[in-house]
Structures are given as C-alpha cells and as structure tokens.
Design a protein around this nucleic acid. Structure first.
Lengths: 152, 152
DNA sequence: GATCTAGTGTCAATACACTGACACTCACTG
DNA sequence: CAGTGAGTGTCAGTGTATTGACACTAGATC
C-alpha cells in the first residue's frame, strides 16, 4: 500500500521542514554576530510590534513556553535590551518594553533578516510569493485545531 | 524606511515557521501514543529509505548533530528498534538497520503522519499542492548555500 | 614513506526548552 | 458572599540538543 512512494502531502511536509530549517540556520548565522539568537530576535520583534505585551502572549507568538520566554527575557534584561516593570499590573503581569539600545540593534537585525528572506524568495516572481503566502496560510489554518487522536 | 511594514518575503518566513511549528506539534500528538518523538520517526523513516546509511549522514537528513543522532540511536537500539553492528566498517562507521518490530511500528507511524499531512493539505486542490511543492523546493534551494555574512 | 585533509564515532560539559507544580489576581456564577 | 475557572509569573527538575574535544581510518599530496 504505502510501501515506497511518499504522498504529495507528505512531500510538502518534508519540504516545509527543510526550508524552515535552512531559513533558521541562515538567520542564526547572520544574527549571531549581533549577539542575538533567533528566538531572541523574534522576541524583540514581537515586543516592537506590540509594546506592553504580556510575557505569556509573547511566548505564544514566539512558539516557546512561558518558562522559556521568562529566562529569555531575563537574559535580554541583563544585557539592557528590555526593561521589565517590577510593579506588577492588574493581572500580576509585568509590563515589558524595549530600550533605546534594543531599538538600534533590532534595526540592524531586521536588515539582516530581510536580506536572508530576500535571498530565499529571490528565484520567485511577485505572483509566486503572493501565491506561496496564500498556500502556506491555508496549511497553517488547516492545522490550527488540535487533531483528535483518532477520527470518528 | 523599514519602519512598520513587513516585506512579502519576511511574511513568507513567519508563515513557514508557523506552519512548520503547527505540523511538528500535530505530528508529535499523533506519534507520542506510539512511543515515538518526531526526530525518532524521521530517523526510522530515513533508515528505511536508505538501509545501511551511516550515522552522520542520518544526522544530516534529520537536521540534528552527529552527537544527538548518536544518543537517539542508542535509545532506539535499547528498545530493540534498530540493530547497530559493533564491527566497524572501512571508515570506522557502524552499519545500522531496522528490526522487524521497527518495520511494524513504522507502518503505523507512517499512517498517522500521512493523516496529519492530509489534514494540512485538505483545503488545497491537487494543482495547489503541486505548486506549493515547487515553490517550497525553490526556496529551499535558494537557501542551500551558506550565506556570506556581507555581500560584496 | 611522511603529511595533510576529510569523514566518522564517541566522550564530556554546557546551553536550551520542556513539563509539573505552586502562588496570586481577576472575572464570572451560584 | 463563597467558589470556580482562566490568565499570569515563577521555581524546581528533567530531558534533549548543542558545542568542543579527541581518536581513528582512508585517500590525496608532496
């Protein structure tokens, strides 16, 4: 039955893994000279897009656990890249904001990441990129709800 | 300049991360009842596609380091899923092969993974899937060579 | 033949992320 | 008002993957 051939859907899965892994690798190569890891960059970027966001929401967007995000933020705070209020807010949350240093560093990082992303989509036309975005979004949405272990 | 807008290429990057992360999560949910993690499944699958492959080559395909693959293989060997020859070959490599138990388990795992992949591509037509494969392969190839830190 | 390079496997130590558990606060409900 | 549930932050313990280092082998180079 499914002896040697891989279904088209499965091939999409491995291509997804391969492309994402390569992208992560290239981003890491470019961000490391700036003293940033990929999750740290994603954290700063999310913090810039949504200032005052809670740590838990931050963790969800970066795809890590609250605990990991906590130590990640501690590291960034120790380097003076983020400021965490020690006066907890209404729901015990600590407001977190970027410092001026982080803004400058983040601009450099954004350029590096944009360059990598540009290399990735270089062989594609504008229409191709738009199509790719649509298709990937459809795949993501299809996987959004936790699959039941067995289907009825 | 690049103040608030994200370029289409960067959006592809985050969509790639989101889709891959969701896929990994769903696969993990389905493989865990079988006692397999995603890297373990990928390892067995690669071992099935290319019997007698070396541990280092295996590591490259699964996107982990040689050392991680080593402990991973030790775990699989301890559960009787793979057999490692203790008579090293010409280049000091140890031939690795799946056991009968692994073949059966892998068949179940393949079904589960195929199901997840099917859910992912469910909202897509056949042409969409083919197009997606082409585009993803192009992105992967564009990222294949290590990017020089700065361009000339 | 001596030397260098590339490939492989392994050990040790470190960094990273995760699960589990607990304390605390707010909104809703009986 | 008591109680339940959801959301957040933190601590401790564990597992996993990584980097760095070393030993060994085969082939290329001089």
């Amino acid at each position: 039955m499914n002896d040697d051939a891989r279904s088209p859907a499965e091939e999409v899965g491995v291509l997804l893994k391969e492309a994402q892994s390569l992208l992560h690798q290239r981003m890491d190569e470019r961000l490391r000279p700036l003293g940033l890891s990929v999750p740290q960059y994603a954290c700063l970027q999310a913090l810039r897009d949504s200032p005052g966001i809670t740590g838990s929401e931050l963790a969800r967007r970066v795809f890590v656990s609250r605990q990991s995000m906590n130590v990640l933020l501690q590291g960034l705070a120790g380097r003076g890249l983020v400021e965490r209020s020690d006066r907890p807010g209404p729901r015990r949350e600590r407001a977190t904001a970027l410092t001026a240093d982080a803004e400058g560093l983040l601009d450099s990082a954004r350029d590096a990441v944009a360059d990598v992303a540009g290399t990735m989509t270089a062989p594609l036309t504008g229409d191709d990129v738009a199509r790719l975005r649509t298709l990937l979004a459809a795949c993501r949405d299809a996987l959004a709800s936790p699959t039941a272990p067995g289907r009825p």
